[in-house]
């Protein structure tokens, strides 16, 4: 019974962990604006956490640079399953203008499975809310399968 209560409440409040892998800060600022009173994603239960161990949804912004690659892999290893990975903006997946750079370690798909990608450079906060809503839905389905 307790497990059911916990599952239900966890589905209603997915916690977000944000990792910057060499982003220009544009997407990071937009993600922060999503949790400000104007857009207020917290009314839908999303909450920014400080540690990957508490996270359900991981938001990755920026092309994966050589410096951040190891940190990304190490951080993702700490996120408990089931997890949903959201790629924010144009950078993480096709690398945007940085593709082919000597210090960019290719797309994010190399290191993990990406579930949702939000396009835009940078995406509007409304688009990020849509993306997070989709991520929460996917998370629910993943939990059910487990």
């Amino acid at each position: 019974m307790f497990k059911k209560i916990i599952d239900n409440s966890m589905a209603k409040s997915p916690w977000i962990y944000h990792i910057n892998t060499g982003s220009c800060n544009g997407c990071d600022i937009e993600l922060v604006s999503v949790i400000t009173p104007r857009y207020d994603a917290e009314r839908m239960g999303f909450k920014l956490t400080g540690t990957p161990r508490h996270a359900d949804i991981v938001v990755v912004s920026g092309p994966v640079t050589s410096q951040s690659k190891e940190r990304l892999v190490r951080t993702l290893a700490q996120v408990p399953e089931p997890r949903v990975i959201v790629s924010l903006g144009s950078c993480p997946r096709p690398c945007n203008v940085f593709k082919g750079s000597y210090s960019v370690e290719g797309p994010l798909d190399k290191f993990c499975e990406v579930d949702v990608s939000v396009a835009g450079c940078t995406p509007k906060p409304e688009a990020i809310i849509d993306g997070l809503a989709l991520a929460a839905q996917i998370l629910k389905e993943k939990r059910r399968q487990k």
Binding site: V116, S117, G120, P123, E126, A127, D130, G131, L134, I138
Partner: peptide
């Protein structure tokens, strides 16, 4: 149109 949210990259 600003909301471009997909699960499959080819849809973009």
């Amino acid at each position: 149109e600003y909301s471009m949210v997909v699960t499959n990259e080819d849809d973009l």
